[in-house]
Amino acid sequence: MEPSTSTQVNKTKTTQQSKLSRFLMSKKVAPYIFVTPFIVSFLLLFLYPMIQAIIMSFQQVLPGQVTFIGMQNYERLLNPEFYRALLNTSIYVVFTVLILVAFPVVLAVFLNSKLLKFRNLFRASLFVPALTSVIVAGVIFRMMFGESETAVINEMLGFFGISPVDWRYGSVSGMFLMVMLASWRWIGVNILYFLAGLQNVSEELYEAADIDGANAFQKFFSVTLPSLKPVIIFVSTITIINGFRMFEESFVFWQNNSPGNIGLTVVGYIYQEGISQNDMGFGAAIGVVLMIIIFVVSILQLKFVGAFKED
């Protein structure tokens, strides 16, 4: 009797197993299983914290004392410091987008040209900055751009008879430092995107242009740029989002407090108010506003360049 029952059990087990695996392998279910890791991480690491942050933005959060205070955090947002942070961040975004789209496109075209010698050397050296950490690179930048006469950059200016500049204390030079650091760091990555894009531009278009007698500039503006449009949209969207989220470029030059708030960014303001000043509710409110801003700007930008249109 006994062996037969056990085989029966085994049988039902295997049928169960095969049923289960058949269910899992079915065309309808499998795709959901494959996306599950993403869905789970999205829910746990993105949606849940986001909802928590929105709730927190209506609260005053102190250890052991959490009270709902309605819109007070949002009302407090309308202060000069926040405007300053927003202004700094916006200027930074505009400059980084302009620089990090225009320069890499041109450089990528050069680096793709067969006329250029030592192409691989140039490619590699332009990419190297991307491998360093912003903090490490920033510390070096901070020393190079020190305010003393003996700092590297001021000494170089001295050769041209220009008096030393207090780099980290003026609003224009401060912004210059941040944009400079970001551009130096990210230019190589963006060149890669454009180089990849250039591989897909068909040779026939250039041949046709040659036959029509187009010069190099006409070819660049009428053939290369339009063909790179998807890459340009991608790169500029990423740069805008990263620009609004910027924190390290400012932190490495001034830590939390920049003179006259010349380096205050929106994320820096979240850090300063939410964590350094122990006001998490207010920090959350800034975060929610920042999220809305990024969302709106990205949608507008994508709509403006026609990314939603079916080609």
């Binding site: 490619r123 990419f127 991307a130 190589g188 990555v189 890669l192 990849a196």
Partner: peptide, 11 residues
Amino acid sequence: LSLLLIPGLIL
């Protein structure tokens, strides 16, 4: 190019 791309993506 594709070799160069890998660290870029990771970064």
